[in-house]
Amino acid sequence: MKRRRFLQALSTAPAVPALVQQAGAQQAPATVPAPAAPGRGGRGGATGQVPHIPVGTPDDSADTVAKFFTTGQFATLKKLAGILVPPVKGNVGALDTDAPEFLDFLIGASPAETQTLYRNGLDGLNASARRKFAKAFSEIDAKQADEILKPLLVQVPWVYDLPKDPMKHFVYQVHSDLRTATRNSPEANKAAANTGRRGGGGAGLFWNPIDPV
């Protein structure tokens, strides 16, 4: 968290010790309370209101370290991100939100089947670019990318009936994932809040773990 935000937050936090003192003044104890037993200090033993310290998320302050894809695969993913989910009409684009870095993390944590789909898909696009244009996919221009990508686009009316062709499947999946990673990013959320437009992932009711074992 930025130092300025932290200090702002502290300045608005309730002055708990003062409140405790007031309460004590109104209900003066007949006897001096016994000191707290050893180990009962700190928050665990607090009897009054405890200050709320605002905390941020890692994305507020730091960058994701991409480490799953190879350098070539990641360059292809970044190129795809810029083409498939560009900034349109004031909405943030995938590259503005570090969506490729997030997907590097997400796919790295995913089942092997998903990892294979992505790795083979990225390698396949790169091979296609080299075959057609003698360049890496990350180096081709938008028109050349269209030439490779458009034949791989399909409608998917039923999300559990994905294209049998692995490259078409991959392009559908990476497009969908980039859109979600972008829409659910802090940057999209902030842009939506600033402009009042739809586009951010918004908020929802999150269920905490309930009495976990």
């Binding site: 997400l106 994932d177 990673a181 659910n184 990013s185 959320n189 951010g200 992932g201 908020a203 999150f206």
Partner: peptide, 15 residues
């Protein structure tokens, strides 16, 4: 047990 959160605050960005 319930808290309002933004999707980007979740560990997997809503995925």
């Amino acid at each position: 047990d319930r808290t309002t959160k933004a999707a980007h605050e979740l560990p997997y960005r809503g995925f």
